[in-house]
């Protein structure tokens, strides 16, 4: 198994557990924390610069979510975060194409916001927007070695730690990411995997 590098651009997700869970798969996780923040939307140049920080990378993980803070997110924050996400995806696709390599783009979205939760309209808008952005980019990349998929993850139900939101099952998420990175997953494109242990069953997906 060759070592691979993933760059995660996140927004307050506690990524230490995910990085640790990816290690056994020989996947190094370069984390760019809080770069999807809302007060400074990232343009293409900045996105390309950020992604190149870890050298040639094999995949981009995008984990946008508004975490609980003193202020509720606003629609303006949403516009900024989506702009940064778009810039990162565009920069990653450009980098894969320039290097003529296989590339993986994966969105990590929280299950609650994705399925729809009362009082979470902005987060649900963000999740819905990401799903559709990824579906469209997947269609556009269909004939290339780049795949674009979404993993919907469960959150930890216990009290949130101060460092960010805890992933419910980082090992399971890491193993799905590892399989999406493998060549066997080249035919998996534009898909949404709801890793919610069945909590979404019986509800319409967005």
């Amino acid at each position: 198994m060759t070592a691979r590098t993933l760059v995660l651009v996140g927004n307050g997700l506690d990524t230490r557990s995910l990085a640790a869970a990816l290690e056994p798969f020989d996947i190094a996780l370069g984390v760019i924390e809080r770069e999807l923040r809302h007060d400074a939307p990232c343009d293409e140049l900045r996105a390309a610069h950020l992604l190149s920080r870890f050298g040639p990378f094999d995949g981009l993980l995008l984990a946008p979510a508004f975490v609980d803070g003193p202020d509720d997110p606003t629609v303006d924050d949403l516009l900024d975060v989506l702009t940064s996400c778009f810039s990162c995806v565009k920069a990653a696709v450009a980098s894969f194409e320039e290097r003529a390599v296989v590339g993986r783009v994966i969105a990590l979205l929280p299950g609650g916001a994705t399925m729809g939760e009362p009082g979470e309209a902005i987060n649900s808008a963000l999740a819905g927007a990401m799903l559709s952005l990824f579906r469209t980019v997947a269609l556009e990349m269909r004939t290339t070695p780049v795949t674009v998929n979404t993993l919907v993850y469960a959150m930890h139900t216990a009290d949130e730690p101060a460092g960010g939101e805890l992933l419910g099952d980082p090992e399971a998420l890491a193993s799905m990411i590892a399989s999406l990175l493998g060549s066997g997953a080249r035919g998996i494109n534009g898909q949404e995997i709801y890793a919610l242990a069945g909590a979404d069953v019986g509800r319409l997906h967005p």
């Binding site: 778009f86 729809g116 649900s124 808008a125 819905g128 927007a129 559709s132 469209t136």
Partner: peptide, 29 residues
């Protein structure tokens, strides 16, 4: 319908997906 994904529509479909997502949360609230 572009919310389901539409070639060439990354901006438009992203926005329309956002309104679909928000609609679910708002409907519940």
């Amino acid at each position: 319908r572009a919310w389901l994904g539409n070639f060439g529509s990354s901006g438009y479909s992203c926005a329309k997906g956002g309104i679909v997502g928000a609609t679910r949360a708002l409907a519940l609230a």
